[in-house]
Write a protein that binds this DNA or RNA. Structure first.
Length: 168
DNA sequence: AAGAAGATTCGCT
DNA sequence: GCGAATCTTCTTA
C-alpha cells in the first residue's frame, strides 16, 4: 500500500511559556504532560473536552516544560486524505482549529512524545513560502493568564480560527 | 473514590 | 451567537 502523506502550512499558534499559569507544565510534570518537558521539537498531544486532540511542540531545553500549540493549518498535500478523515469537503474548515487539524491528520496520543525534527509518522518540514505578515493577539479559550499576547497568526488568512476580531 | 475543570466542536436559533 | 456534548486527568477527601 502506498504511503499516505498529508500536510499543511501552520498559520496559527499559541505559546505556553515558562511560568505561564495557563500552561500545562505550570504545576509540574504529570503522566499526561511529560512530553512538554522533552527537548524542544517534540510532540505533546492530549485530549480536551473528550473529543479534541491538541498538538503542541515542546519549546525549551529538556526538563523545562513549555510548548507551542498548533492551532490551524492551511491544507497543502493529501487534501483528499484530510477530507476523508474529517468527513467534510470544504477546504476552509479542514484544519481551521486545533482539534480539527489533529482530526484531519489523524493525530492522537500515539504520537505523543515523537521527535518532530525527524521524518516519521509526524514531523515538521521547512517552509518554502513567504511567511507573510504575522499578527498577534490574546489567546483563545483559556481563563488563567488570559491577557497575554501569545497567539500568533498569519494575517488575513482564511484558514485561521477564532473570532473575526482576532483574525485581522 | 468521587468530583470538577478543561488550550473545543458542532448544531441549532 | 449560545449551549450541550463528552471523557480524561488531576485534585481533594
Amino acid at each position: 500500500m502506498a504511503e499516505e502523506v498529508a500536510s499543511g502550512r501552520i498559520v496559527e499558534t499559541e505559546a505556553y511559556i515558562v511560568g505561564d499559569a495557563a500552561g500545562h507544565a505550570y504545576r509540574g510534570m504529570t503522566p499526561r504532560n511529560r512530553s512538554l518537558f522533552l527537548e524542544r521539537g517534540h510532540a505533546y498531544v492530549y485530549l480536551v473536552y473528550g473529543s479534541a486532540y491538541m498538538l503542541n511542540v515542546s519549546s525549551e531545553i529538556a526538563g523545562t516544560g513549555a510548548g507551542v500549540l498548533i492551532k490551524a493549518l492551511e491544507p497543502r498535500d493529501g487534501i483528499p486524505i484530510m477530507q476523508r478523515n474529517r468527513q467534510i469537503e470544504r477546504l476552509g474548515d479542514l484544519a481551521r482549529g486545533p482539534g480539527r487539524l489533529t482530526a484531519a491528520l489523524r493525530i492522537d496520543r500515539r504520537l505523543d512524545g515523537v521527535d518532530l525534527c525527524q521524518e516519521g509518522a509526524l514531523w515538521l518540514g521547512c517552509g518554502d513560502d513567504n511567511p507573510g505578515e504575522i499578527g498577534q493577539s490574546i489567546r483563545i479559550g483559556i481563563v488563567r493568564d488570559a491577557n497575554r499576547l501569545l497567539r500568533f497568526y498569519l494575517r488575513g488568512s482564511p484558514f485561521v480560527s477564532g473570532p473575526r476580531s482576532l483574525r485581522v
